[in-house]
Design a protein around this nucleic acid. Structure first.
Lengths: 112, 112
DNA sequence: ACAATATTCAACCAAAAGGTTTAATGTATT
DNA sequence: AATACATTAAACCTTTTGGTTGAATATTGT
């Protein structure tokens, strides 16, 4: 699924760093890889995973591969997580309220 | 990192389904596992990963382990992703605006 | 034509993920 | 005490992940 691939892609610090680099503008593979202490090949693989998630796009011109961000999967994932978060909030708060109400009821009965 | 563990935990459909089940209220491991077509042991492992992320908490009473949701890591991850999303939006829109401005400038020069 | 550059491919490795099955452990029930 | 139940532990398997090194491919610059 798309959500899976995006979350997987985001779940690695090196890949998040690559994305952060690309917020400064499009860059070639070599340029992206330069600051990292791992091999170019390792970065190349990370980029493939980011592409699988659709977070990164590639435009080949000659021997250079220009990489750029694509926002859509991030938007979709943000929407999913925010929706889930809101749902949890309502459920967990609702449950808390329910427990308090029951507690109040129990005390009221005890008084009688 | 905490963000890593949370994203990893969320990046699997079985684990997301477990979380969804727990929004209906706390449940024992067996109860959580029941609807899934995989072994109880597999579910047990998934739960461990959810616990590592702090998304699920366990309260042991006798032989039963009651599982419940903990919202905090989800909130933090939602905050991170929303922040990132907003940043991308400003950057990418800003870049687009810049390109349009440059284009307009070029055309203006051409006219002269 | 030759050398340098940019990138991937291929083969390999160790560790983790996601699953299985078969114990083992502790707690209830009868 | 014997049995059933809830859960994890252990050992194993296969695939994926994150990394390596060395070769292949294609493009650019001299």
């Amino acid at each position: 699924m798309q959500l899976d691939n995006t979350l997987i892609a985001l779940a690695d610090p090196t890949r998040r760093a690559i994305l952060e680099r690309l917020t400064q503008g499009a860059a070639k593979v070599t340029e992206v890889a330069a600051p990292f202490p791992i091999s170019l090949n390792a970065i190349s693989k990370h980029i493939r995973i980011l592409e699988r998630a659709g977070l990164v796009q590639r435009r080949i011109s000659g021997r250079d591969h220009m990489l750029s961000l694509n926002q859509q999967p991030l938007d979709e994932t943000a929407a999913w997580i925010e929706q889930t978060r809101a749902f949890w909030t309502s459920r967990l708060d609702g449950l808390e309220a329910l427990l308090k109400a029951e507690d109040a009821l129990t005390k009221a009965k005890g008084k009688k």
